[in-house]
Design a protein around this nucleic acid. Structure first.
Lengths: 129, 129
DNA sequence: TTATTTGTTACACTTCCAATAGAACAGATA
DNA sequence: TATCTGTTCTATTGGAAGTGTAACAAATAA
């Protein structure tokens, strides 16, 4: 998995790391139980401080994406809390779509964009829930 | 238009204001040329500082959502820069969708969510661009 | 057992942004 | 003439981000 921090971005490092890990899980379909590098290893690899990585991992734990295991590090463990996930998604989607609507982006174009991204994430191999 | 600041939110006031204005434009279909309250009026109404409102308006100007007119205040004026809008949307959608995918949200559910929000924004009266 | 690595926590420090406040300015309006 | 507009200064406070050093218990490897 390729992880890179954009040091010129205005986005916080730990947010960037969280997003990239989530994108990584979505695209490469990391299996339940796979472990991420330790906070120190990850920090050395991408060139940021240990505590910043720790914060990112803590956020992912809070979100239910990983569970932290003292023995195995940060283990991918997807909480299936779909009600909250859908509510959260509705809030975030609302703002993104509103921005698009203000720019005259059509409904079809959004659906197309969603399909395109979904194909990238799932590679067409989605088992419906 | 109902504008409210959540003082307990971790989101910056000026970001909240930007989002709410954009949501307001998307839902209530404010016409090209309509004016927002002056920075001082808006500040008094929602209970934040004048400069914070000014920053929000500046951001909206930067994004091409409004044009600032010394005579008429902040006037809604939608730049039609769809290429950049779609690129921006793809980036933001990617993160939102990835989070959903990690929570086993299906493609159909996302499409449904998009339609639901689009209906709320456009009320079914969309002219395709 | 010893040594190393793990996650975790605590304290300190710097830097930066958000937010507020007061003040002033030129231009437009009543 | 007043008033209101956006805009731009300066200043201050508060908090978050990020880094650094250090320590701890638990787990692992030697």
């Amino acid at each position: 998995m390729i992880l890179e921090i954009d040091f010129n971005s205005d986005e916080a490092y730990y947010i960037q790391l969280c997003n990239q890990i989530i994108l990584g899980i979505a695209t490469e379909r990391i299996r339940e139980g796979e472990a991420l590098p330790s906070v120190r290893q990850m920090a050395d690899r991408i060139g940021i401080n240990m505590h910043t990585v720790n914060k990112a991992y803590s956020v992912l734990k809070q979100e239910g994406v990983v569970k932290l295991d003292r023995r195995r590090g940060a283990v991918v463990s997807l909480d299936i809390d779909k009600i909250r996930a859908l509510e959260e998604m509705r809030r975030e989607l609302a703002v993104v779509l509103a921005r698009g609507v203000c720019k005259n982006v059509s409904r079809q174009e959004v659906h197309q964009l969603v399909d395109e991204l979904f194909d990238r994430f799932m590679g067409g191999l989605e088992q419906d829930s």
